[in-house]
Write a protein that binds this DNA or RNA. Structure first.
Lengths: 131, 131
DNA sequence: CTTACTGTACTACCTACATAGTACAGTAAC
DNA sequence: GTTACTGTACTATGTAGGTAGTACAGTAAG
């Protein structure tokens, strides 16, 4: 399980963990029944306090994504895949809405906004080869 | 001068004010020499504490966008237009970078991401008529 | 001169987030 | 039984953002 924390992100650390676990479930990296890193292990990996990870895991439990096995750790719920698949796009959409609304309000033209989007996507998403 | 605060934005209130003043200058709504709303007036308009507005205006002074006329108010610096024009796109780009990086990492396909962007842009930016 | 505005600068308080440290009970391995 | 892990639950502390209230000095209008 690979969680990466952006320290200057606008999102708090616990929320970054929550989102990334949800994405991992949605993409199949994490499957129902899988164990996730323990609170202390993940805290060590991403260099944050265990309480911060515990906060994220608590939220994920409340969201029906993780469930606890006391003394053993946490595992992915059986219903998690469906939940996270349903949620992934809206999680992304919400943030895009906010940023694009601001972009529009800054009076950048649509072409300018789209150009920035393409540039940034080119950076992060490989262009698919057309056969 | 129209400042609109999104209460559930990821950006703190003072930063929203800073950005929106910069955009207003970049687009010409505010010109060098123009007065901006007083701290107390804007606080009343957007329903926040005057100290919050003062914080934003202080930052804008440090950024060379506004300058103070003690007892009279603040006005737009003569060099503000150039600064804000230069800065507008990078302000927008930074946030788009963050959000698009996350979108890519969520494993949504490029097509899906682009589709969301188009949908949201259609909401905020009128489609230009092609003559 | 008085009043009403202006920015600036504080104090005190609250919430949210994050950290550090500690402790407890449950589980597993030796 | 002991040790090492597990999650959970606290306390105390610090930072950031925001609020409320107050006070001061500068400016302008009547």
């Amino acid at each position: 399980m690979l969680i990466v924390i952006e320290t200057n992100s606008e999102l708090p650390i616990y929320e970054q963990i929550v989102r990334q676990v949800k994405f991992a479930v949605a993409t199949g990296s994490l499957r129902p029944g899988d164990r996730v890193d323990s609170v202390r292990d993940l805290a060590k990996k991403i260099v944050v306090n265990p309480n911060t990870v515990a906060r994220a895991y608590r939220d994920l439990q409340e969201d029906g994504v993780l469930e606890t096995v006391r003394g053993q750790g946490l595992k992915v719920c059986s219903r998690a895949l469906r939940r996270c698949l349903a949620e992934r796009k809206s999680l992304i959409r919400e943030r895009l809405q906010e940023v694009l609304r601001e972009a529009a309000q800054s009076n950048l033209s649509r072409e300018e906004i789209e150009a920035i989007v393409e540039e940034e996507l080119n950076r992060y998403v490989p262009v698919e080869e057309v056969p």
